[in-house]
Design a protein around this nucleic acid. Structure first.
Length: 466
RNA sequence: UCCCCUGUAGCUCAGUUGGUUAGAGCGGUGGACUGUUAAUCCAUGUGUCGUCUGUUCAAAUCAGACCAGGGGAGCCA
């Protein structure tokens, strides 16, 4: 049996006046004393539900059809016909309704056919995708992921699966989750009384990755154009609408490329995937526009149709100093920009995505390439209005002597980075890359404010239900 | 982690100079009506008032601690 998708039925891919069978869940049931009931059935394949018209002469009409409530699952067979009513082109004139599963207590079924708060839906993560919002987010998220892979593939990039478990303890970017099989009630100890990680699963300390970048640089130094796209973990106690403990990130890494090449790729990629969403998920985007963010479609079109501003950090500081606006945090060359500064630049001054680049070296990571001025590094952030930093990237330091000097400056042990340093010893090449926060992208594309609502099962401090 | 706000029915919320049986809308249920569109109309409310402790003759209401959610900040993607 091949199950047909409601999206294909509504798109007119099946001949009218012939029998079809659809499967799905009831969104609403309306009864008419004319002797028929209307079932709105959705299967997740598209935003709209299909309407089934059920006559009361079906033998299970009284006993079963009239007991269907929101959330029940059904298999409906009947003739596909042009609708007599307004609001839909096609409908099914049912000749058979098979109930697959009732809702056992309709009074307490959480997903009533009514508006729910987004926070409530989050607490019902297992049923959330059945709602208009949950379904739309899921389809847009999928569309964006597919578009990212398609974009990279079309440009000749190889998808590299970098490890989720890392034993390097040298990734640098934030707090890590420990991975261990040691008995926490009874830890093995060394003679000095320290935990003996030689006894642990990997024979040393291990963690969940905070970035695939360092690993993917190795494949970049062989395959030229590569990217990672997978889950990433940060154990920071961040409690905001923009942070997750487990999130997905796409990290392209380009050999023989400088910072401008990375920025250009970032711009091209964002435009490509946002365009794909507008073209492929017009139904869901219309919903977001209507119910979530009245400006979302215009905003995406604005991003697609305009060049991203390129702005040096030094010039950004000048703008902030001369804009006449009072900031909570004082502005001077050398500071790490605060959220209010980034917002001003992206939302007020330019009102569009801004590529901020060439930051002071003291506020950036060791692997970013030192510029000729000896003061700044070839780093870039893409700031988007409403979301803030959506992409962070840099040209990587390919000169071993300078890399070592930076490691020393930052009090890092070169021993920990031996394989990373090898890339600079054996045929080093200039290369650049960036990381795109996937959930931030989904939030930006849909207008949904909280990142926890655009990932199926959000993990955050004190939050790991489901 | 810090600051501010919130936590009352399945859901969204009202309800404090502390005082008998804590309310509304939606949902659900029953009925009416209709090729209906989250239909409409009528009927229908048994709730650890987030948790614990305290103040009081009396606490949804006041105080403290804790837990959870939201907004902002920091960290970052």
């Amino acid at each position: 049996m091949s199950v047909i998708a409601i999206t294909d039925v509504l798109a007119g891919k099946f001949p009218v006046n012939e029998e079809i069978t659809v499967h799905g869940w009831i969104r609403t049931r309306r009864d008419s004393k004319a002797g028929i009931s209307f079932l709105a059935i959705h299967d997740g394949s598209c935003f709209d539900a299909i309407q089934a018209v059920v006559p009361n002469d079906l033998n299970n009409y009284q006993d079963e059809v009239l007991k269907l409530t929101t959330g029940a699952s059904v298999k409906v067979t009947g003739q596909l016909v042009e609708s007599q009513g307004q609001g839909q082109a096609f409908e099914i004139q049912a000749t058979g309704v098979e109930v697959l599963g009732y809702v056992d207590d309709p009074d307490t079924y959480p997903m009533a056919a009514k508006r729910h708060s987004i926070e409530f839906l989050r607490e019902q993560a297992h049923l959330r995708p059945r709602t208009n919002l949950g379904g739309a987010v899921t389809r847009v998220r999928n569309c964006l992921a597919q578009a990212i892979h398609r974009f990279m593939h079309n440009k000749g990039y190889f998808w590299i699966s970098t490890p989720i478990i890392t034993a390097s303890d040298c990734e640098g970017a934030g707090e890590m989750f420990r991975v261990s099989t040691l008995d926490m009630e009874n830890l093995p100890r060394t003679d000095k009384g320290e935990v003996d990680y030689n006894e642990d699963f990997f024979g040393k300390e291990a963690f969940l990755t905070v970035s695939g970048q360092l690993n993917v640089e190795t494949y970049c130094s062989a395959m030229s154009k590569v990217y990672t796209f997978g889950p990433t973990f940060r154990a920071e106690n961040s409690n905001t609408s923009r942070h997750l403990a487990e999130f997905w990130m796409c990290e392209p890494e380009i050999a023989f490329a400088d910072l401008a090449d990375a920025a250009n790729l970032a711009e091209e990629m964002l435009k490509y995937v946002l365009k794909a969403v507008l073209e492929e998920r017009a139904d869901d985007m219309a919903f977001f526009q209507q119910r979530v963010d009245k400006t979302v479609v215009d905003r995406l079109n604005n991003v697609i149709n305009n060049e991203f501003v390129r702005l040096d950090y030094t010039d950004a500081i000048e703008i902030l100093l001369n804009c006449g606006k009072k900031f909570e945090n004082p502005v001077s060359w050398g500071i790490d920009l605060n959220s209010e500064h980034e917002r001003y630049l992206a939302e007020e001054h330019f009102n569009g995505p801004v590529v901020l680049q060439n930051y002071p070296k003291d506020i950036k990571a060791f692997y970013m390439r030192l510029n000729d001025d000896n003061k700044t590094v070839a780093a870039m952030d893409v700031l988007a209005p409403g979301i803030g930093e959506i992409i962070g990237g840099s040209q990587r330091e390919e000169r071993l002597d300078i890399l070592d000097a930076r490691l020393e400056e930052m009090d890092l042990d070169p021993e920990d980075y031996s394989w990373y340093r090898d890339l600079r010893r054996y045929g080093t090449v200039p290369h650049s890359g960036f990381g795109l926060g996937f959930e931030r992208l989904v939030a930006y594309a849909t207008g949904v404010q909280n990142i926890r609502d655009v990932i199926p099962f959000p993990r955050a401090p004190k939050t790991a239900s489901f």
